[in-house]
Design a protein around this nucleic acid. Structure first.
Lengths: 214, 214
DNA sequence: ATATAATTGTGATTGTTTTCACAGCGTTAG
DNA sequence: CTAACGCTGTGAAAACAATCACAATTATAT
């Protein structure tokens, strides 16, 4: 099983969404440069990425959209349904639930956990909340390998230890801390603070650049 | 003004948080390898990054924490307060407000906008919500250059056009679409769907790898 | 039938980011 | 006073990612 760089996976996910939108408008074929424009990438990049999924287009028609969507799915998606666990059903956790509610049926947040008894047993955006004590049993039972961490920073490592101990090997982390995990576990950090500081930094640079020009 | 790669900015933001935590415990000095471990980076990387901020440590003591924090601030932070606008006060927007409420006083979400009259004029997590019609006036008046986009996908481009038209040149985008902006505008995409698919992909790979080994 | 035009697939190249490796330097120990 | 240690700062190398550029391909027009 050859290595796929994570940037490529991210772009393929985006391409697929764009392709689905086109398919919904009954467009049948798309050229690399069209897809590139929609995705904010170069045409060469799109062709390279498509090459990685092992799909091939026609020099005259471009890529057949429905087939390309399937090909991307064969690489990205599980054969069956892949369930995701959410830990932490606070403001952010609920927003995440709302966001994913009913999106992709074969990649869905199946269970959530919280330590607050007020949340336990409630069904929020179609997902039942369990007490954190049941995390290991439930995750093991459902063979969940992917989880979203949306607990406060000081509880994140503990939650992750529980998850990893039960076999979870993919984490989407919203807590503003670096998680300690074995190298076999993939962590994607969604660090709002860092991202905002990044944007603020470049915005300020650009603003002062424009001021200089005047 | 020399170029700073955006990955470096992200790491510096992280280092600063880690350093602040150490400073709070009255630690005075830190070695590159210690900071590296906490940040999940290599020691050489930390030293390179510190080099970029133009700070220098001692071969025997390492970096003086309080001074390094200041040095990072001189690069990353605005001289005065930098205000941020939030567009879209739905589930996600409110979670973002809660997340940043009272975090960093000189980088704060000062105003929010929504088209829903039910939200207008309410103060949510310390931030007043204005009708979207007032966006351009308010943003121009307060000279805001940084904004967070948390509206549904189909409204994102319109919101961004308004923002960019008023001089905003840094965007943190939560809408699952590619924004069309002039090249002078910096966009950081927080694409939950893509990130989750990425994590799910690598989790699945790892899981099937471990299965193979058995 | 043949020429034309536009696109794909990909080796080669370029550019960027990370790591290596070591000189130089305070501090400490003998 | 000298040696040894373990760190920083950084040129050089390696690894990684994106782009270029062009042969191969196939529909269309003549």
């Amino acid at each position: 099983m050859f290595r796929v760089p994570d940037k490529v996976v991210a772009r393929l996910s985006l391409y697929r969404r764009l392709l689905s939108a086109l398919a919904a408008e009954n467009v049948e074929y798309v050229y690399s440069h069209q897809l590139a424009k929609a995705a904010g990438a170069s045409a060469a990049q799109v062709r390279r990425d498509v090459m990685i999924v092992g799909f091939t287009g026609s020099p005259t028609r471009g890529y057949e959209i429905r087939e390309l969507i399937k090909a991307i799915g064969r690489l990205l998606d599980a054969a069956d349904i892949q369930e995701v666990a959410l830990v932490g059903v606070g403001n952010l956790g609920r927003a995440i639930l709302a966001y994913f509610a009913g999106r992709r049926p074969n990649l869905r947040i199946a269970v959530s956990f919280d330590k607050d008894p007020a949340k336990v047993d409630r069904v929020i955006h179609g997902c039942r909340c369990y007490p954190i004590e049941q995390l290991q049993t439930m995750v093991a039972e459902r063979q969940i390998d992917t989880a979203i961490v949306a607990v406060p920073a000081d509880q994140a490592q503990h939650a992750v230890d529980l998850l990893v101990g039960t076999g979870v090997c993919g984490l989407l982390n919203f807590a503003p801390v670096r998680l300690r995990v074995p190298p076999s576990v993939f962590v994607e950090d969604m660090d709002l603070t860092t991202s905002l500081e990044k944007v603020a930094f470049f915005a300020r640079r650009q603003a002062s650049l424009q001021e200089q020009q005047r």
